[in-house]
Write a protein that binds this DNA or RNA. Structure first.
Lengths: 90, 90
DNA sequence: TTGACAGGCAAGTCTCTGCTTGCCTATAAA
DNA sequence: TTTATAGGCAAGCAGAGACTTGCCTGTCAA
């Protein structure tokens, strides 16, 4: 493994988190937890999601912004371009 | 995991195999083994590469064609489009 | 027919990683 | 100041997966 981008994409929960941030960007950890439980039926704990977000951030797919006791998470799909460039689809 | 596409992309050796097939399409198992050892310094065994190819085939990234005792492997990047469609990069 | 070559199958090992558990820090409200 | 809320850290467990090992099948040439 070891490539942060593909490692981040390897987990289904992390991919759903990206879906969630695509739909509504700039969510806090608790907000993501709540919405994942609601819409996707995921019973992941706060700690689990937090660790997933760390992996996504390491891959550059998610950036964070602190504001008081809140930490907002933003998606950045730019790293995904490297995939299309590496193996062109025509 | 469980999504064949992302599972296939998760392993660095499999990504190098895709690189190798991008450069020279339609190789046999032994050919791939040899070239990976040469160019990429990968000391993976035949069995290991064979299992990797099976995973790539399951993901639709590689198709195979039998010819006598030879089996040729072809890359198909079409499944990768689903990534760009799922999380658009602008 | 025999031997070499290309590939397949299956069980076992070992590492990685996702998740839990428990406790801690920091900010904001009562 | 006390309490609740948002989040972080670290150790431990358990399952998934990459790789090895050993043996088997099928094709082709001598």
């Amino acid at each position: 493994m070891s490539d942060p981008l593909f490692k981040a994409l390897a987990d289904p929960t992390r991919r759903v988190i990206l879906d969630e941030l695509t739909e509504k960007d700039g969510q806090t950890l608790f907000e993501i937890c709540t919405r994942l439980a609601m819409k996707h039926g995921l019973g992941s704990s706060r700690q689990a999601i937090s660790q997933h977000l760390a992996v996504l951030e390491e891959a550059g797919l998610v950036t964070t912004r602190r504001e008081g006791r809140y930490k907002f998470h933003h998606i950045d799909t730019a790293p995904l371009r490297s995939i299309a460039e590496r193996w062109p689809t025509e």
